[in-house]
Design a protein around this nucleic acid. Structure first.
Length: 288
DNA sequence: ACGGATTCCTGATGGC
DNA sequence: TGCCATCAGGAATCCG
């Protein structure tokens, strides 16, 4: 599922392809993916894409005229560059009306000019499980929308003391807390498990029991893991792929989905436990 | 106000 | 091999 490294990769790929490109028009094929009642198509039609960046684990399209498109990919959301079919001959265009998009495409953005490395002129949003959400932000509304989203700073931005303080004031499991987007954004189930393993912290420990030294160790390991994952274009699980290809950090996972395997450090059998409703693998010997 | 439970979805997985 | 139940999971929403 796309977390910070995957979102960073997707945003970076999209920015390379789409910066300066204008959205000619758009289609929504499955309405529930649009989160708010703003007039989606009218707001993006004819807008130039100024920049695509990451916001926590969301993708942020900054459009001309102070319009913004925020996308939460959740588990299986993807962006694909492809062909709109508009440039086909009239006979082919008639066929194009019934031409199937790739499976599970729920939104199509037709581009005013070729954008991708193969001259793609469309951007598809695809999502097998339909959990992802598109949020269109009208001019003047961005600050209010951000406030409503209530996203905390990401692990590279957060002040270590603020991070320790966020942990100190709640009894919830430390893993649940580092996945709480309102406190620190960008960490999901994969990187939470990997970071806590690297920091040798038991994921079910009450966050309030984490001392300053341990908190800084968690943050340090989180940053190191995320940095390496970004370099490898993220972890390819749940069919994740970015526009310019998948990532390979899943090959470096030490605990995620490794229940029953020997701990790579001490050889004890890795255990699995549901924490905050999320399956969590950890080493019962190494992680205290 | 806090935190746990529920809900949304469907492809992948595992047991028999 | 095929079928069916279970699992996976981010975040909004509900509920005590």
């Amino acid at each position: 599922m796309p977390e910070l490294p995957e979102a960073q990769t997707i945003a970076s790929d999209l920015n390379s392809a789409l910066q300066g490109v204008t959205i000619a028009d758009a289609r929504i094929l499955y309405r529930p993916i649009v989160q708010n009642p703003e007039p989606f198509l009218e707001l993006c039609r004819g807008r130039e894409i100024l920049e695509v960046k990451r916001l926590g684990k969301m993708i942020h399209f900054r459009l001309a005229g102070d319009c913004h498109l925020l996308v939460s990919l959740r588990m299986t959301g993807q962006f694909l560059l492809g062909q709109s079919g508009r440039s086909a001959s009239s006979a082919a265009a008639a066929t194009a009306a019934t031409t199937a998009y790739p499976p599970h495409v729920h939104a199509v953005f037709n581009l005013a000019s070729a954008a991708g490395p193969q001259g793609e002129d469309a951007l598809f949003y695809r999502d097998a499980r339909k959990f992802g959400r598109l949020l269109m932000v009208a001019p003047g509304e961005f600050a209010a929308t951000l406030a409503k989203l209530n996203l905390g700073p990401d692990p590279f931005e957060i002040d270590p003391e603020r991070f320790a303080a966020a942990l100190a004031h709640t009894q919830r499991a430390v893993k649940t807390v580092i996945m709480d987007q309102s406190l620190i954004s960008g960490i999901g189930n994969i990187y939470a498990a990997e970071a806590l393993f690297a920091a040798k912290i038991a994921p079910a420990r009450p966050a309030s029991s984490i001392n300053i030294r341990e908190a800084s160790r968690i943050l340090e390991k989180t940053r190191a893991i995320l940095t390496e994952a970004i370099q490898l274009r993220g972890s390819t699980v749940s069919n994740y792929s970015a526009p310019f290809g998948p990532g390979s950090y899943q090959e470096r996972h030490l605990v995620y989905r490794q229940k029953g395997a020997p701990c790579p450090v001490c050889r004890a059998t890795l255990a699995q436990q549901a924490i905050g409703g999320r399956s969590t693998v950890f080493c019962p010997r190494c992680q205290k």
